[in-house]
Computed example of a mutant assay.
Amino acid sequence: MERIDSDLIARFASAVDTLWPHDERSGPLGLAVSGGPDSLALLLLAQSAMPGEIAAVSVDHGLRAEAASEVALVGALSEKLGIPFTAIRVTVGAGNVQAMARDARYAALAHWAQENGIGAVATAHHADDQAETLLMRLARGSGLSGLAGVRAWSHLPETGIPLIRPLLWARKSALEAAVADCGVTPARDPSNANPAFDRVRVRQHLAEHDWLDPEALATSAQHLAEGWRAIEWYAEIDWEEMVSTDDRSGAGPAYVYYANVPRIIQIETVRRIVAALGGQVSRSEAGRAADRLWRGQNASLGGVLAVAKVEKVAKIGVEMRVWRFTPEPPRAVH
């Protein structure tokens, strides 16, 4: 097996170090490997950059007959390379198949990581994935959170285990070439060529129009992600400084919010208040509620009643918009 290009290995190692610094590591890096060219490149790069510090896992969603052989492919390659390997079979619930499969996969990865002392988990999302995601979300009218694209760093669901994507700088063609250079034949998922899926149509569009540069689009997504992180930082300050519990309601848990920030921050704070009261709302729902409250109208969302007032704030001596949030009273049944 030929060695992967040293520059590719160095860029991968640098990305891992940035996303998962050495002084924060407490276990091996888990690799989510499907058997496709991208994830096999992740496996081969990680083996070259950090041998003995990785473990691989492959998830069979039970949706295609070929999946079992693809998991076996990953297992055989992992054994050849001396990499600990785990195969997982999950059940995908009804509904949006792609979304439900994703949820099942990440839940399985989280359980595997916790059970095996994995320090972080890496996936093989790359620059072409990022470009496709940005274009799809632009077409759907997504807000800044959605346009930030695939996050380079997050957590596995319901855990504190880092989920990193150290290949967002890499082109798919470079990853496929690296796998071919190593003499490995990847699996090919036929759904990746099925135009019934939005992502496939976007991928075909990118291939047909060379003025749309996936690397440039991925860079734009990175800039948007940086902007979104700034919004999250500001929203945390808004929560800490402008939201407090309200003991005067006499009707159970309640929050008071001194709303004096741009709308995009209001949306995040309103969602957080509703969540603290046991509800859940989308950003679009929170935005509509914030618009009503800003106009001085009450709003109901996620089982929470929000009442808009203007009050003089004693500590600063000026009048401000004050929004009070309480659980909605139960509706009368006749």
Rank of each mutant, 00 (worst) to 15 (best):
I4C: 08
A13C: 07
D17C: 04
D17E: 15
T18W: 06
T18L: 05
T18R: 15
G27F: 09
P28T: 02
G30R: 10
A55D: 06
A56W: 00
S58I: 05
L63Q: 15
A65Y: 05
V74Q: 03
E79T: 12
K80H: 13
I83S: 06
F85Q: 06
T86W: 15
T91H: 11
T91V: 13
G95S: 01
G95T: 04
N96L: 07
M100E: 15
R105L: 07
A108E: 09
T123A: 15
T123N: 12
H125K: 11
H126Q: 02
D128F: 01
L135Q: 07
L135A: 12
L138D: 02
G149H: 05
R151Q: 13
A152L: 10
W153E: 11
L156C: 11
G160V: 01
P162T: 09
R165H: 14
R165Y: 09
P166C: 02
W169S: 08
W169M: 06
A180D: 13
S191C: 07
D198Y: 00
D198G: 04
R201A: 04
V202A: 06
R203E: 03
H205Y: 15
E208T: 10
H209Q: 05
W211R: 11
L212Y: 13
P214H: 01
Q222M: 12
Q222K: 13
A225P: 01
W228S: 03
W233P: 00
W233V: 06
E240M: 06
T245M: 09
D247L: 14
G252L: 01
A259T: 02
I267K: 09
R271G: 10
L277H: 01
Q280V: 03
R283H: 09
A289R: 12
L293K: 03
A299E: 09
A306I: 13
V313D: 13
M320Y: 00
W323A: 00
P327K: 13
E328S: 15
